[in-house]
Amino acid sequence: MVYPNESQENSKKMGRGKIEIKRIENTTNRQVTFCKRRNGLLKKAYELSVLCDAEVALIVFSNRGRLYEYANNSVKATIDRYKKACDSSHPGSVSETNTQFYQQEADNLRNQIRNLQKTNRNMLGESLLGLPMKELKSLESRLERGISKIRSKKNEQLFAEIEYMQKRDNDLQNNNKFLRARIAENERKIQNMNLMPEGSNFEAMTYQPLDSRNYFKVNALQPTNHYHHQQQDQMAIQLM
Rank of each mutant, 00 (worst) to 15 (best):
M1N: 12
P4K: 00
N5C: 08
E6R: 01
Q8E: 07
N10Q: 05
K12W: 09
K13H: 00
R16I: 15
R16K: 11
I21G: 01
I21W: 00
R23G: 09
I24Q: 07
I24S: 03
T27V: 10
N29L: 10
R30G: 01
Q31L: 12
V32E: 12
V32M: 11
T33C: 10
C35M: 14
C35Y: 12
C35D: 15
C35V: 14
K36F: 14
K36S: 12
R38H: 03
R38P: 05
G40T: 13
L41Q: 00
L41Y: 02
L41K: 00
K43P: 02
K44D: 05
L48W: 14
L48D: 11
S49W: 00
V50Q: 01
C52N: 10
D53I: 07
V56P: 04
F61Y: 06
R64K: 07
R64Y: 15
R64T: 10
R66V: 15
A71T: 13
K76R: 13
A77Q: 15
A77G: 12
I79W: 14
D80M: 14
D80G: 14
R81G: 15
Y82D: 15
K83Q: 14
K83A: 14
C86N: 07
S88C: 06
S89G: 06
E96G: 00
T97G: 08
Q100N: 09
Q100H: 11
Q100T: 15
Q103K: 14
E105T: 02
E105H: 03
A106R: 09
D107G: 01
L109T: 13
L109R: 02
N111W: 10
K118N: 15
N120R: 11
N120T: 14
R121G: 07
M123I: 02
M123F: 07
M123V: 03
G125M: 12
G125K: 09
E126Y: 07
G130F: 13
L131P: 06
L131W: 13
K134W: 10
K134V: 12
R142P: 02
R142F: 07
L143Y: 06
R145Q: 13
S148V: 15
S148D: 11
S152I: 15
K154W: 14
K154C: 12
N155W: 13
N155K: 08
L158Y: 08
E163I: 05
Y164N: 03
M165L: 01
M165G: 01
M165A: 00
K167V: 07
K167H: 10
K167G: 06
N170T: 11
N170G: 07
N170R: 08
D171A: 02
N174P: 08
N174G: 09
N175D: 11
E185K: 00
E187S: 02
Q191E: 13
Q191F: 12
N192G: 03
N192L: 10
M196F: 03
E198I: 08
N201K: 04
N201A: 06
F202D: 05
F202Y: 07
E203A: 08
A204T: 08
Y207T: 15
L210N: 02
D211Y: 04
D211G: 01
S212G: 02
Y215E: 12
Y215G: 05
F216T: 02
N219E: 11
Q222G: 00
Q222S: 01
P223Y: 03
H226V: 13
H229W: 12
H229R: 08
Q230G: 00
D233F: 04
Q234M: 08
M235P: 03
M235S: 06
I237Q: 04
I237P: 02
I237W: 10
L239F: 07
M240P: 00
